[in-house]
Design a protein around this nucleic acid. Structure first.
Lengths: 233, 233
DNA sequence: CGGCAAGGAATTGTCGACAAATAAAATACA
DNA sequence: TGTATTTTATTTGTCGACAATTCCTTGCCG
């Protein structure tokens, strides 16, 4: 379990690799919410001093992915089930506004990237690879957001989608294959609206799409109380 | 100019003070955009080792307030005049959505705080203290946003308002006293809508208020090209 | 006189170690 | 036996120093 990731670090890039590695592990729930983070252990694992490790942790803390108790332990941030309404509200708004802007500002180049990622998503659905579905769905919508060319929205949307990935991973066993298939179709419609530069339709479709996803997650949480109860308060 | 801020630092709080101090100085343009940041100098000034200084800088970098070129200098982030449209777009949306949520979720306690801050703003306008106006206006709208109780919106709105403070400070000499007086009245109307829990009116008023502010800043920039030309590209 | 290379100075990223603060264990006491 | 208090151990925050990289100067050559 305690494998060293990389032995060589080009000076100045050690912090980035630690940051990105931990970030992924947190989002993919390889590091459980609430679990403590041992600086010494990370120091050994990455073959780095504690100083760059700590700088990476500061960045993660700024992202809200870890929580540092001053002079005490630092832990992986818990998923805030009480604030889920806020989360869904913001997520829906960002779905809408980024898709709208995507329709208005997309370039032909953007369309290509979006189509590519939609293909990946469809493939994941066809293969019933739930983890890949969660990941490719995120990339698909972020590509549209990027086409919208507003970094403030992209930043917030990224944060929200990644937080969503953590939540979805808790329930991914509950996935059935009827809803995802529907998502593929909804994505296609959204792409068409973006191509047509039809902001209104894009907005409406994104709104419905977001509602769909929110409803799905809500039903997971409601039907499977065991998982949430397992998490420490 | 090189005064030591604090000699004693309760262990674990040195980083916070450095972070907050520098953050304020950047937002208030005491540190000019593009100006280099000397770690050694800060180390002397705060009577701290370079390690905590660097951690504070990492946090500022995550906020986008400073830009770090790896293995090279780190500078105060430049104001992105080319991306102003994105900025205004996001700012307007956050004005709207936070005021709307404020109207829906405010408690009597929130109203008290909002009223208090509106008083501060009116006072600043009466005294023609432009710098205080910029600051109190920000606090007023953030109080409404806080009453809306959605941390995602509050976070983004804070970031946007602080970026706006940097921009406004560049042009604050251009302030005339007719528009600010109008703002006081608009604030009063917004407060009333929030009290009435009238989300639609709150939204509409916030939207108009935001447009007003955006128009004002735009006119400043248009009429005073010298300032923008002074900034390095 | 101008461009390029080598050398030196300054600055950044990283390290190992120490000290303060907290958590855990051991002991004393009721 | 349970609670309070001291002792020990672990972990965090900070420090001073070193090494790698970049910047700047100087000298060389065309």
């Amino acid at each position: 379990m305690e494998e060293t990731d990389k032995v060589t670090h080009r000076r100045g890039y050690g912090v980035s690799t630690v940051y990105e590695t931990l970030r992924n592990e947190i989002i993919e729930l390889k590091l459980a919410p609430g679990s403590p983070i041992d600086e010494q252990q990370l120091s050994d694992r990455f073959s780095l001093s504690r100083t760059p490790i700590r700088e990476a942790l500061v960045r993660l803390s700024a992202d809200g992915l870890i929580t540092t108790l001053t002079n005490r332990a630092t832990i992986v941030s818990n998923i805030d089930f009480l604030g889920l309404s806020e989360f869904f509200d913001a997520l829906t708004l960002m779905y809408r506004v980024t898709t709208r802007l995507g329709a208005l500002n997309r370039t032909p180049d953007d369309i290509g990237k979006i189509r590519e990622l939609q293909k990946d998503f469809a493939l994941a659905v066809a293969e019933r690879d739930v983890l890949a579905m969660i990941s490719t769905n995120r990339d698909f919508h972020l590509a549209i957001a990027t086409a919208g060319k507003n970094r403030y929205y992209v930043d917030l949307f990224t944060r929200l989608l990644d937080e969503g990935r953590r939540i979805l991973r808790l329930y991914y066993s509950s996935f059935n294959d009827v809803l995802p298939r529907q998502y593929v179709g909804e994505h296609e419609d959204i792409i068409q609206a973006v191509i047509n530069r039809d902001a209104e339709t894009a907005d409406r479709l994104a709104s419905a799409h977001a509602d769909q996803i929110v409803r799905q997650i809500r039903s997971y949480i409601a039907s499977d109380g065991r998982q949430t109860a397992d998490l420490k308060i």
